[in-house]
Design a protein around this nucleic acid. Sequence first.
DNA 1: AGAGGTACCTGGCAGC
DNA 2: TGCTGCCAGGTACCTC
Length: 271
Amino acid sequence: MPELPEVETTLRGIEPHIDGQIISNVIIRNKNLRWPVPGTLKKNLVGQKLKQLQRRGKYILLFTDNGTVILHLGMSGSLRICDAKTTPEKHDHVDIEFKNGKVLRYRDPRRFGCVLWTSKPVEEHKLISPMGPEPLTDEFDGDYLHAKSRKRKNNVKGFIMDSKIVTGVGNIYASEALFRAGILPSRQSGRVSKERYQLLAKCIKEVLSEAIKQGGTTLKDFTRADGKPGYFKQSLKVYDRAGLNCIVCKQKIKQKTLNQRSTYYCSQCQH
DNA sequence: AGAGGTACCTGGCAGC
DNA sequence: TGCTGCCAGGTACCTC
């Protein structure tokens, strides 16, 4: 489900309800996520004030004085705000309750996500420390991509989806950004020119920013914290459009598997 | 060091 | 109405 824009949308949706609030209870209904939800989570959180919420790549970080919750939505996860009386559904695995009566409810049917705890500085955590720069910062640009890609043999789509290179670019927005930049997804990353990487970096920033403005992309089951879908699907130019006409040249959009992931592109507009 | 494959899991859908 | 097989927005971890 969620790439960077969907995670950012989720964060913005939950933040106003729980930022600065005191945690009153934690309920773990199913600890069997990608890694076990730590049994100490409740002990560590209850009584703590939620001091800050932050997104890092596709992770959501909940900061308290005691430590930090590290949360990932995997492929099918979502977070929503409800009140304690709302009956949990089948895949609602974790609740964090607040003194103001709000509940942060974590749902994840496939359980590829995680809810973890660290009492050390979060940037030292093994899931966070290897991550590359945020795509929407000045640190991330074409020069950076060009320098990182030299002598690499992988394709450019896999390259920009590597979280050690840049965080948050997932399967939808990788296809979309490459289409906007006119670069074939299968092109070897080490053979893309600096000029083309400058365009690609710009396109990545644009497509992610536009998607955030639209509340992310709902293909199937992504919902915002208030339960509404994201509206960026209508702006997708290649993703999930195999066999349909390219909006630029009218050629049929192609689909192929690259790095075990569905990849969409226009063979006329991209080279 | 980097590339490629595998594993984790449920649900929805197409085809029979 | 089943059943089967395939597909899905992610990514750590393993081997080569």
